[in-house]
Amino acid sequence: MIDFLESHYAPQNGLKALDLGCGGGRHSELLAAYGFDLDSVDVNPAMLEKTAVRLKAKNLEGNVQNGSILKLPFKDERFDIVVATGVLHQAKSIDEYKAAISELGRVTAPSGAVLLNIFTNDVWDDSYKTLDDTHNAVITKEGPGMTLLSKESFVQYMNDARFNLEVDYGVDIKQENTGARAVFRAVFRKEAKGAS
């Protein structure tokens, strides 16, 4: 992410950024330090508190608030850059996944960038319990539900929402504390107004 920011944005740029699913605030800290007008959102109050404490400890500013990817508390086309790492695949169904991508499209400005990573279905754990006949929505043995798409399906859903793949970092297999996961990292750019 740092390489992308350095090659596309000048520090102290005054542009608006959203850290979607901010967790403990690692990306929020980076975005605020880089000069973005920052909003950080998460559904978990404990994570929001960690992000707020982290920003304050570094003397950085940001608006930290509760919010869901399915109904973000922001005006249309507000953000020039959105960071969404480990968020979208937490959808409970294909329909919820598409709704989340649609909401992401709503709040991203024309020509805005979305830096993200998602878990894909390139690694499949036999312990997954499928929730629907698509076999994409699953419950893991740890309990959280998620929807695992192929990279190609995800890119198509993003294209349908007027996002074009700009940087493809590929799919890496990572050992998480919950087991092996395939992680797709990429940057998408929302089409400019009037683009077709």
Rank of each mutant, 00 (worst) to 15 (best):
169 Y>A: 06
111 S>Y: 05
105 G>T: 06
158 M>R: 01
108 T>C: 13
157 Y>E: 12
145 G>M: 11
166 E>I: 03
123 V>R: 11
127 S>M: 04
172 D>G: 03
146 M>Y: 14
108 T>V: 14
116 L>M: 15
135 H>K: 10
166 E>R: 06
118 I>K: 10
172 D>H: 06
119 F>D: 02
107 V>I: 12
120 T>R: 06
121 N>K: 12
116 L>G: 01
135 H>L: 11
158 M>Y: 02
102 S>A: 14
164 N>F: 14
112 G>M: 05
165 L>C: 06
148 L>I: 08
140 T>G: 05
170 G>H: 07
113 A>M: 11
124 W>E: 10
165 L>K: 04
104 L>V: 08
126 D>Y: 02
108 T>Q: 04
157 Y>M: 15
108 T>W: 04
110 P>S: 00
122 D>A: 06
109 A>D: 03
113 A>L: 10
153 S>V: 10
142 E>G: 07
166 E>V: 02
150 S>T: 15
100 A>E: 03
155 V>K: 05
126 D>W: 03
116 L>E: 01
128 Y>F: 12
124 W>I: 12
121 N>P: 02
107 V>M: 03
107 V>G: 06
144 P>I: 02
157 Y>Q: 06
122 D>H: 11
117 N>D: 15
148 L>F: 14
146 M>I: 10
159 N>Y: 11
111 S>N: 13
153 S>E: 15
164 N>H: 14
119 F>V: 05
127 S>P: 00
170 G>M: 09
142 E>S: 10
159 N>T: 13
100 A>C: 09
102 S>I: 11
134 T>E: 09
135 H>E: 14
102 S>T: 12
126 D>M: 08
173 I>T: 06
109 A>C: 08
159 N>C: 03
144 P>F: 13
150 S>E: 15
137 A>M: 12
160 D>V: 09
171 V>R: 01
148 L>D: 08
105 G>C: 08
158 M>I: 06
169 Y>C: 07
130 T>A: 00
159 N>D: 14
120 T>Q: 14
108 T>R: 02
163 F>Y: 11
125 D>F: 05
131 L>V: 04
147 T>Y: 15
107 V>Y: 03
165 L>Y: 10
138 V>G: 07
143 G>F: 13
160 D>H: 02
140 T>M: 02
154 F>Q: 05
173 I>H: 05
121 N>F: 01
143 G>D: 08
171 V>C: 07
141 K>P: 00
118 I>M: 15
120 T>S: 12
171 V>M: 05
115 L>E: 04
148 L>S: 07
126 D>F: 06
100 A>G: 15
114 V>G: 03
154 F>R: 03
